[in-house]
Nucleic acid binder design. Sequence first.
RNA 1: GCGGGUGUGGUGGAAUGGCAGACACGCUAGUCUUAGGAACUAGUGUCUUCGACGUGCAGGUUCAAGUCCUGUCACCCGCACCA
Length: 801
Amino acid sequence: MKYNFSEIEKKWQKIWDDNGTFQCSNDYTKPKFFALVEFPYPSGQGLHVGHPRSYTALDIVARKRRLEGYNVLYPMGWDAFGLPTENFAIKNHIHPAIVTKNNVARFKEQLKSLGFSFDWSREINTTDPEYYKWTQWIFLQLFKKGLAYKSEMAVNWCTSCKCVLANEEVVGGVCERCGSEVVRKTKSQWMLKITEYAQRLIDDLDTVDYIDRVKAQQRNWIGRSTGAEVTFKSSTGDDLVVYTTRPDTLFGATYMVISPEHPMIEKWADKLNNMDAIREYQQAAARKSDFERTEVAKDKTGVKLDGVTAINPVNGKEIPIFISDYVLVSYGTGAIMAVPAHDTRDYDFAKAFDLPIIEVVAGGDIEKEAFTDCETGIMVNSGFLDGLTVEEAKKAIIKFLEEKEIGKSKVNYKLRDWVFSRQRYWGEPIPIVHCEKCGYVPVDESQLPLVLPDVDSYEPTDNGESPLAKMTDWVNTTCPVCGGAAKRETDTMPQWAGSSWYFLRYMDPHNDKELASKEALEYWSPIDWYNGGMEHTTLHLLYSRFWHKFLYDIGVVPTAEPYAKRTSHGMILGENGEKMSKSRGNVVNPDDIVRDYGADTMRLYEMFIGDFEKAAPWSSSSIKGCSRFLDRVFNLFEMIEGEGIRADIEGDLHRTIKKVTTDIEDLKFNTAIAALMSFINTIYEKGSITKDEFKILITLINPFAPHVTEELWVMCGFEGMLNQAQWPKFDENKCKEATVEIAVQVNGKVRARISIDTESDQAAAIAAAKADEKVAAAISGMNVVKEIYVKGKLVNIVIKP
RNA sequence: GCGGGUGUGGUGGAAUGGCAGACACGCUAGUCUUAGGAACUAGUGUCUUCGACGUGCAGGUUCAAGUCCUGUCACCCGCACCA
């Protein structure tokens, strides 16, 4: 029989809402638990079935922790600034604030229909001036410490959004948001010095409990490498500094390459005889999009500088200098020493330009290819380094370079500073004023929030200026320092700004004096468990760690890391195993599932679908199993007989409590549910359940299916509400069974299964095994070589003829 | 190229080195029904079925391997001309 889920679910959602059931307490003496899921971007499409996978998982943890007596903060909010809203607003001539309001209302309704235990009294919205006041405040602190600066530089420019993008927002050469081509454009941009924190962002990963793939991906993205900077003298007498991770191969450097954008080229312009060819190459490189420029396996191109050469500082040899786009201006010094014998790229280039290739580490065949995997080789053709191992040579050459003052050891990172300006309307205004006399001047903190002005048209401009630039009334202001005429910054902040600190605001969301009170920060920090998508690993997760470290340094927050634990859920794919998308026509709408099966079934199914950390395809037939399970739970009500815990159920019950309790903490929701299903199957076989057994059972199911279990609690007449009950405890001793079935193997093959006393010793177990007919037959006339007994598992008798 | 991961029935997936396939879907048969996209019962890895074979493939370690080691293939994710 089906219970009336929609009636029950609406009823309990209203009760929870009216009573503020899940509002956390401000009693800072209680043990706390801060569970966090990534707040959604309220898009026009509404909730995706992927959202509830993460939200349900931590809702289960949060609900369980409440029953265990913790003061649980499980908040929700809206990451509502951003391009899609603005694009929708432009297309449909609706103000982005209205679009946001509508989308938020829809999302909130959908989330409530799923029965999440969010503390809605702490709801936040990044587009609320009372919220972004503090986003702007943090920006000003960064500015004051020199970590926010304006710089003219080549940036990623999305041709469709007409806006710059951070490196992290360019995926495969195209815009992460709209998929359009991204080209390089030189613009003056606000930048944040995340590179200053590169080492700490790596080091402190050791202090947090993140799943390994997140740590690995962040380390990879930051991309630390160690090597040396070496100064080469040019024939013009200039210093040309290169960065190399292989200073030991310096004797093999047969030419140099500088990037097409290298500033030295302009300095040497009048000494170069082939400036036309050089200019042409520079222009060709500049025209290329990021995608073209990073296309793999393309032929090496370049132009030799005619008129300027360099001297290899260790052997005094004169070597040519080239420009080539395989050297990036933004990494290292924008110049390299090329060692074709031991670097594949240099090798390809040397072959293309017929340059000498000198082997300096023995062991490879440089006639065929570059010998790069040479860390264990011995140095040759390298003067005083000859005969040393690569490791020894590295030390010796650095000592040499330092003594001669022509080089030093150096650490480099792939991580670049964060491009923080966006030429769009729907974002936080950057609270800076530009004064001809005083330069860039911060808006006084008392003037925050600097409210985003209402505009008639928020279309992006073709000249690359923010739509705000047209608001002359707003743009023209006075300089906070000298009082003279000045102009406001018209770029806005990227979407990542508001989400870089939002979790702090949940701790004290209505504070109008500080971003959060000291007491609240002390009590709630750090976040105990943060679950979110892998796609944010090098974006939001890295950015927010950076901001948090900065806030820690200036004494605002009490911990160096924001998140004690980070986990990540797998994607929910379409029924055909492909990523859900409108164009593939495989999108499942959560509203339909809630309508047809109810929120409890939806929640249960998303947790049962498979390994939480792995992607799993949606199955419209599998969900019925979860629906059936809840029907069976509901129908147990009719089977209640008597009280107490029956002796023949006790072991099963305790094992189920144990399994559910530990599996929830280990992200193994699927096996926790399987254990509950098994237990119910056992009860059905027995034909009845006692009131006390039922009480424990529905408490265990409550975090997964909160509505139906609350209803059953009341139907049974138990005291209060289930959300005020206590999480059941298991007794390790009661988990054990008196007898256990073990396998008996002969030479590793199972010959029999016998039932023995759980506490049997080896002698007893083996005797029992040998008493079995089949075992006796198998070993008769054979020599027993070895007997193995694994308690509670098996006996293995090893025999020989 | 670098980093991370995954290969188990018809399907989703379980298995601290210790009985492979828990749990669920699906399927088959049955009961009850005017009816079944309901409920319940039984069965369901494969085969040449008193046995043998089975966790991508090939080896190895071990009394014992889905699990550990070596090699190999395939696929997925992230980064990528980062010197």
